[in-house]
Simulated assay, not measured.
Amino acid sequence: MQLRLLLLPLLCASFSCQEETSSSKQKTVEPPVIAMIPKGTTHSFWKSVEKGARTAADAHGVELIWKGPLKENDRAQQIQLVQQFLTQRVDGLLLAPLDHKALKAPVLRAKAQGVPVVIFDSALEGQPGEDYLSLVATDNFEAGKLGGQQMHKLLNGTGKVVLLRYQVGSASTTRREEGFLEAVQAGGGIEISVSNRWAGPTVGDAKNESLNLMGRLREADGVFCCCEPVAAGMLLALRQEGLAGKIKFVGFDSSPLLLDGLKKGEIDALVIQNPKKMGALAVTTMIDYIKGSDSSQSTNTFVDTGTAVVTLQNLHNPEIKELLE
Rank of each mutant, 00 (worst) to 15 (best):
K246P: 04
I190G: 09
E191T: 14
T55L: 04
S172C: 03
K263M: 05
D131R: 02
A76T: 10
T284D: 09
S210M: 11
I119W: 03
K263D: 07
R75F: 04
D99M: 04
P229E: 07
R54D: 00
N317E: 13
R197P: 01
K27F: 12
S298L: 08
A206C: 07
L257T: 10
M151Y: 13
V271A: 03
T307C: 13
T202E: 14
V271Q: 12
G52V: 02
K71T: 13
G251S: 12
H60V: 01
N314W: 12
D260W: 06
M234P: 11
G179E: 00
V168S: 07
Q113A: 11
L124M: 09
P275V: 02
C12F: 09
S295L: 06
P31K: 11
Y289Q: 08
T307S: 15
L10Q: 09
A76W: 12
R75M: 02
S255C: 10
G40W: 00
D260Q: 11
P201Q: 10
K277H: 08
K39Q: 02
L11N: 05
E177A: 14
M278W: 02
I79M: 07
C227L: 09
F224P: 04
G148S: 09
G187T: 03
K248R: 15
N196F: 12
V184T: 08
V82H: 01
